[in-house]
């Protein structure tokens, strides 16, 4: 570490920088929270007041209206189904990529990684037309299929990083002991790759929870909209009821923030393993 041996005083500028960064990151969150707790009858002063005089939860109660609950439910269904399908599919694909050495598999991996960078904007028109032709507009299925497709490449890539580190010799030992390959997969590979599975799950969840473009294009009725699209609708709808808008923002963000902070360590190592080690 570069700063070893420096006196405490020498560290003061760095601590100030730390505080500046914390401020940059937290100021918008602070503002979101402050406005969400502001009672409707407390007028907006100009320049704006930093913290409400009488903080209240009334905005949260108002914002948690039936349509918001519906958006919430839709988001949970779509994200949940995507995670439940993507992660096992990616696990199987990543497993065969690390355990079998066929040329076609490395071609496949390259193709999958390349696909990860396709602009969603460039694909949206044909995908929309497909969804429409299949009569799937305004359905969960359309979103779930689209989300599985866009999250699969990254999920395969992340899991592959973890599975390469699960030594093959363990499975071979199990095979000698008479275990069938599938059995070795469930009893040895999956438990050892668990941190990777957790990291991938969190990643897929974060991506699908906030996905906007497909949800905006594929859904048109209030019953089928997910949280991000619903939030976008709110901007005009709420007019100057910023308190409710911010309260719903807090409620939308909370689930991912909570999950993320519980599983943070595993997630960060999963994300950086691939990028740093190539």
């Amino acid at each position: 570490m570069a700063s070893r041996g420096k006196s405490l005083i020498g560290k003061v500028p760095l601590v100030i920088l730390q505080l500046a960064i914390a401020f940059l990151v937290l100021a918008p969150f602070f503002w979101m929270l402050s406005v969400s707790l502001k009672p409707a009858n407390e007028p907006f002063a100009i320049p704006a007041r930093l913290w409400p005089d009488n903080p209240t939860l009334e905005n949260y109660i108002l914002a948690f209206r039936p349509e918001f609950r519906r958006y919430f439910l839709n988001s949970i269904i779509v994200s949940g189904a995507t995670v439940l399908i993507t992660v096992p599919l990616a696990l199987l694909a990543a497993y065969s990529l690390t355990r079998y050495q066929f040329r076609i598999l490395s071609v496949f991996l390259a193709a999958v990684i390349l696909a990860q960078f396709f602009p969603a904007g460039a694909m949206i028109i044909p995908i929309y037309k497909m969804v429409k032709a299949a009569n799937l507009l305004d359905t969960y299925a359309s979103l779930i299929i689209a989300y599985i497709t866009v999250t699969l490449p990254v999920a395969i890539w992340m899991l592959r990083g973890f599975l390469t580190r699960v030594p093959k010799t363990l499975e071979e030992a199990a095979a000698i002991d008479g275990a069938r390959p599938l059995r070795a997969f469930f009893d040895i590979v999956i438990p050892l790759a668990r941190p990777g599975i957790v990291a991938t799950t969190v990643f897929v969840l974060i991506v699908t929870w906030q996905e906007f473009l497909f949800a905006l294009s594929f859904t048109s009725t209030k019953e089928m909209r997910t949280l991000p699209v619903g939030m976008n609708d709110y901007i005009g709808q709420y007019g100057i009821r910023y308190g409710e808008l911010m309260a719903s923002s807090v409620m939308v963000s909370l689930p991912v923030i909570v999950i993320f902070f519980f599983l943070q360590r595993q997630f960060v190592s999963g994300l950086t393993a691939g990028a740093v080690k190539g």
Partner: peptide, 23 residues
Amino acid sequence: LRSLILLPWVLPGVVAAILWRFM
């Protein structure tokens, strides 16, 4: 601090945008 700085990244994009509209 290392944990805190990840907050914006976890925040859904639409929410981040609404937040900045407001900022």
